[in-house]
């Protein structure tokens, strides 16, 4: 219940934050909403010497149009996304997913950036970020770089964000309504055991499928996508494609769901998500 002692810093600018991260190196941790970091600190699974709170850094919390994309500041909370009229109209996958994260209190504090960098294999956002093929902008002492969602997740709780970098923005495309997120939740924690996000692009006859909770890192179900490319999305086609949603992945196995059950659930939820998305098209 009680974290180990640490020093607390609250920089006001991004540059200052990055400088502090460089200075304190691996002993420092960025604190965003704190809803992943503080729980692990309370259990003393994480014991950073320095905590750098980026909540006072200007302009990290926003949802705004930027060219043909929607830009979301990394410090935007799950709730602000859930309640964003702009996203509801332009990228409804995110507003559908947000209320399925944790609980109301968690959504009031937790941030999309924190969730993505924390890269819990059971976190929800990664599924949508992958399905939307989002761009993620990362700031470091050498300036900013953008990476594709598919390159962002490296492994279990590991991303391309280095310890002295800060994720500052997520850019998603606008989509039609033909999207869906279907989640099978771990009962006790609420995290995803199998979460599937689907974007159906009716015009181009393509789908993209992001999967979370199932494997050590979230993934795009490329096999499903390629089978369905150019196809009419009728029941048979969907059934068939969903059947290969776990192909080539090594599912996690724990007391909440065996590997076999996870592999099964991802197929069910892929089918369901595709059906819902198509019905909305």
């Amino acid at each position: 219940m009680i974290p180990a002692a640490f020093d607390y810093l609250r920089p006001a600018t991004l540059d200052e934050a990055i400088a502090l991260l460089e200075l304190h190196g691996a002993d420092a941790k960025v604190l965003a909403g704190g809803h992943s970091l503080v729980p692990v600190m309370k259990l003393r699974l994480a014991q950073p010497k320095t905590v750098i709170d980026i909540s006072s850094v200007a302009d990290l919390s926003y949802v705004r149009e930027q060219g043909d994309k929607i830009a979301i500041g990394a410090m935007t909370t799950h709730y602000d996304i859930e309640a964003s009229p702009l996203l509801r109209d332009t990228c409804p996958l995110l507003t559908e997913l947000a209320p399925q994260i944790g609980d109301a209190q968690v959504r009031n504090r937790g941030t999309i950036g924190g969730s993505l960098v924390h890269a819990d294999p059971a976190a929800d956002w990664p599924a949508a970020i992958l399905a939307l093929d989002a761009d993620l902008e990362i700031a470091g002492s050498n300036g900013r770089r953008a990476v594709k969602a598919t390159e962002f997740f490296v492994g279990m709780m590991e991303t391309v964000v280095q310890s002295s970098e800060i994720l500052c923005e997520i850019r998603v495309p606008t989509t039609a309504r033909s999207v869906a997120y279907v989640k099978f939740a771990q009962r006790a924690s609420g995290f995803a055991i199998a979460g599937v996000a689907v974007v159906v692009d009716g015009a181009n006859k393509t789908v993209s499928v992001g999967v979370t909770g199932v494997a050590a890192r979230p993934y795009r179900a490329l096999a499903v996508e390629s089978v369905l490319r150019g196809k009419v999305l009728n029941r048979d086609a969907i059934d068939q494609a969903a059947g290969i949603a776990a192909e080539g992945v090594e599912p996690l196995d724990d007391i909440h769901a065996s590997a076999a059950f996870r592999a099964h659930l991802v197929q069910v939820n892929t089918r369901r998500a595709l059906e819902v998305a198509v019905s909305r098209g």
Partner: peptide, 27 residues
């Protein structure tokens, strides 16, 4: 609890419901 699940510690922080066991006082 210590895993931010139970909500017994819920207070309003700037008008929003939060779990006060998962916020540092300095925040």
């Amino acid at each position: 609890c210590e895993t931010s699940i139970c909500g017994a510690c819920t207070v309003l922080f700037e008008g929003k419901a939060v779990k006060s066991c998962t916020l540092l006082a300095v925040q």
